[in-house]
Design a protein around this nucleic acid. Structure first.
Lengths: 72, 72
DNA sequence: CGATAAAGTGCTATTTATTGCTCTTTATAG
DNA sequence: CTATAAAGAGCAATAAATAGCACTTTATCG
């Protein structure tokens, strides 16, 4: 997943769950400023920050192989 | 994927490809020190750093939903 | 139009990641 | 045991992420 895709995934997921940035920030323990920066495409969050955000949204950060045609 | 799993995934993948930390650092543009810290479990890399490392190893960082029983 | 809620931005202090250098530790091979 | 290669770690400078505060922008509603 490209950088902008990751952002969109988080953003979309948050909107599906109808959670505001403010609420997500509180629930995840990530600063509101950090979350805003990230979602507006201006951040380079640490892995920990990304994991905390993903966790609240019922998601997880993972690493997967590219190019594997049989992966689906 | 939990934090230690992510590290292990990178480490294992690097060893499968028989690439040293030094080579991976050069190819990815990430500092050797940073890579060493990460693999030894002492880092909290930025998303960009993780992406650069994963890229060279033919992998990618992704976000996926948890709890979906039918995901496999 | 004005009011409200949510998102985005400038500024800035503090913390932390990144990096190179050097040194140590841990295999592995001769 | 010695030599070599790879990985790990202390130290320190620099760059960057985090975070709060206040302000602006945008969208929605009455």
């Amino acid at each position: 997943m490209h950088y902008t895709e990751l952002i969109k995934t988080i953003k979309d997921r948050r909107e599906v769950l109808q959670v505001t940035q403010e609420t997500l920030a509180e629930l995840s323990g990530v600063g509101l400023r950090t979350l805003k920066q990230f979602e507006s495409g201006k951040g380079n969050p640490t892995l920990l920050t990304l994991q905390k955000i993903a966790e609240v949204l019922g998601m997880e950060v993972s690493l997967k192989l590219k190019n594997i045609s049989g992966s689906k």
